[in-house]
């Protein structure tokens, strides 16, 4: 047992060493591990605008098959001090015609919200995002119109995706060109 009373008689005399500055937080140490061990497929790229800031970065996904082949989609990641108890905040910065991503860039991916677990990593999220482009899921729509088209007319959906990526209108929404 620690006998604080006897020990603390000795304290209080400023003999304490120099300030080393606060140590890196557990969240910071954990994200460093996540980042150092990113193991991404060649279709995904991660970019750090400021290499000293490992908590804010971009992930670029450029699918090489299926509907979104040839497109280039940028996601912003914001990791908070609550990590990994809380998931990072992820937004899609590229306007995309996709059943699970709305026009404001909100992404409906289960592990970003209700199914997040601290054992998951940044790598798992990037794989999750990549999967959304390979298998858009019309059952859980965020962009309802796109989801309905995918469900009723796959051919039209494919055309709409291609058109949006070249830059053009789908209905009355204009999509910027996002081809590589």
């Amino acid at each position: 047992m620690i006998k604080l009373f006897t020990l603390k008689q000795q304290k209080k005399d400023g003999e304490s060493g120099p300030d080393r500055g606060k140590r890196a937080s557990a969240a910071q140490l954990r994200i460093q591990k996540d980042i150092n061990e990113l193991n991404l497929p060649k279709t995904c790229q991660v970019d750090f605008p400021d290499p000293d800031d490992l908590l804010n970065f971009k992930v670029v996904i450029a699918p090489d098959e299926e509907f979104y082949r040839g497109g280039r989609f940028v996601f912003s990641f914001k990791v908070g001090q609550g990590y990994p108890h809380d998931p990072p905040k992820v937004k899609c910065e590229t306007m995309v015609y996709h059943p699970n991503i709305d026009l404001e860039g909100n992404v409906c991916l289960n592990i970003l919200r209700e199914d997040w677990k601290p054992v998951l990593t940044i790598n798992s999220i990037v794989y999750g995002l990549q999967y959304l482009f390979l298998e858009p899921n019309p059952e859980d729509p965020l962009n309802k119109e796109a989801a309905e088209v995918l469900q009723t007319n796959r051919r039209l959906f494919e055309q709409n995706v291609a058109k949006s990526m070249r830059g053009g209108h789908i209905g009355n929404v204009y999509f910027d060109r996002c081809l590589k």
């Binding site: 500055g21 890196a24 290499p51």
Partner: peptide, 18 residues
């Protein structure tokens, strides 16, 4: 990495290209 004045500083990381 290290910490300078409470802020992270990345000294070297070879696994991430950027």
């Amino acid at each position: 990495t290290t910490s300078v004045g409470g802020k992270n500083k990345t000294l070297y990381m070879q696994t991430v290209k950027s």
